[in-house]
Design a protein around this nucleic acid. Structure first.
Lengths: 239, 239
DNA sequence: TGAGTGTATTTGTGATCACGAAAGTAGTAG
DNA sequence: CTACTACTTTCGTGATCACAAATACACTCA
């Protein structure tokens, strides 16, 4: 039995046509983005390799890749862990999200044709359904899909990887924070965004996206709560 | 003798205290950002390992890391190369730079105290000196230093890695374009930025940064020239 | 001369091993 | 009970090897 809290994350079956490296990378990436690995928890190559049933090699590469997008942190000890959150870092990440995503949304707007609009409406509908059944994990996944679908409507878009880096950095903390919260104020500014898209109103779209981001993380945004969750977060990764 | 054009890039001496992986990564990253490796050129692990005098292992990791920040591209063939530029991609990169960097600048503004201001002035002075002697490579390096010093004045800043990813993607093309240009319209909006900083005027600073970025790459911004350089660029990487 | 074909070479991938450094453990002295 | 030390284990790093896929090359046939 491990003295450390065991690591658990979603294991998707590997498609034979994809390299082991890529599969490991995407599995770990998904785990981090959806907060399945707690901040502060030390990750070792051999342990992950054992869980995933592969040799240490692909895991090494995946950890390094995740570190370069700041999803993981390689400390001086050469230990790899999910970074801890600070109040200021949290603020900066949210502000960066608003700046980048509102920009990406407005640059995608001209490319949203009727089928793409339909796809967004469908995602919006699925989110509403998931909210009724209170499936928080599903809501988060669908919310990501909605934003991703919007931004990647621009075929020349280059900012999605940057945005995902921010999602990766926020994921573990937001997951932990929402886990310790009884009531979830799930805000849905997507209707507002949809209207802006239909009207081809870039400014209104930017405002809707900013509101969606700001309110989507507002449940921790009061200074006291933020501080509380950061403490909580630091404790969770204690061992 | 190689049939392919040989790869040449700056080789800094390795500090023994730093891991080989890190040294290789930073060496290759510097080479890409400053356009020492042409777009379209196929990079092989063993070739780079030979040049750097290390085993293939650290090179593999470095190439993967650079690929995750979109500095390199791993094609379906599993071949690694510097991505080719397109007109739309170029536009998107520039727009993203303006959105991200003006944001980073305004969020750094409150943290710029007197010693940091002095440091920025010194960099500005060095840039002027480099301009007089027409040392284009030195101008570019110092210009990067100026922007980096400005944005990282914010101790909680998290957008510098994202910004550098954009620099990495623009580097090879800008280098190639400027290399094929007789006259260089080196613009210097730094004075304007410095005044905005002194006045603690966030909006003016954002405008100055945007102008600096826009004009710094304006020498290729006419559609015909852009198209011309893209052709040139594609040809350079032919073999 | 040019397109197709077989072989030889080179490539990325992934596993394994050796080594030094870091962390964990037990024992001892204060 | 606490602080220090010696020992054991575990870890990341980097080199090497085996293998399959992709590429390059020489050759043949139209």
């Amino acid at each position: 039995m491990d003295k450390k809290s065991p690591i658990k994350f979603t294991l998707t079956e590997r498609d034979e046509s994809v390299t082991i490296s890529k599969w490991v990378y995407e599995t770990l990436r998904h785990a981090v983005m959806n907060g399945q690995i707690l901040p502060g928890r030390a990750l070792t190559i051999r342990e992950l390799a054992g869980i995933l049933g592969v040799s240490p090699m692909p895991v090494r590469e995946a950890l390094r890749q995740l570190a370069t997008e700041n999803a993981l942190e390689i400390k001086d000890n050469r230990r790899v862990m999910v970074p801890n959150m600070t109040a200021m870092k949290f603020t900066e990440l949210c502000e960066a999200r608003m700046a980048l995503e509102s920009h990406a949304a407005s640059r995608a707007l001209p490319y949203i044709d009727s089928p793409k609009l339909k796809g967004l409406r469908e995602l919006d509908r699925l989110i509403d359904a998931a909210q009724e059944e209170g499936n928080l994990e599903r809501i988060n996944l669908l919310n990501q899909d909605f934003h991703r679908a919007l931004y990647t409507a621009n075929p020349h878009q280059i900012s999605m990887p940057l945005i995902e880096s921010l999602w990766l950095q926020l994921g573990p903390f937001l997951s932990l924070a929402s886990r310790h919260l009884k009531e979830h104020y799930v805000v849905d500014r997507h209707d507002e965004a949809m209207r802006a898209i239909e009207n081809k109103d870039a400014l209104a779209l930017q405002l809707a996206i900013n509101a969606d981001i700001r309110e989507g993380i507002a449940f921790v945004s009061t200074p006291e709560r933020l501080h509380h969750f950061i403490e909580e977060c630091a404790y969770a990764g204690r061992n």
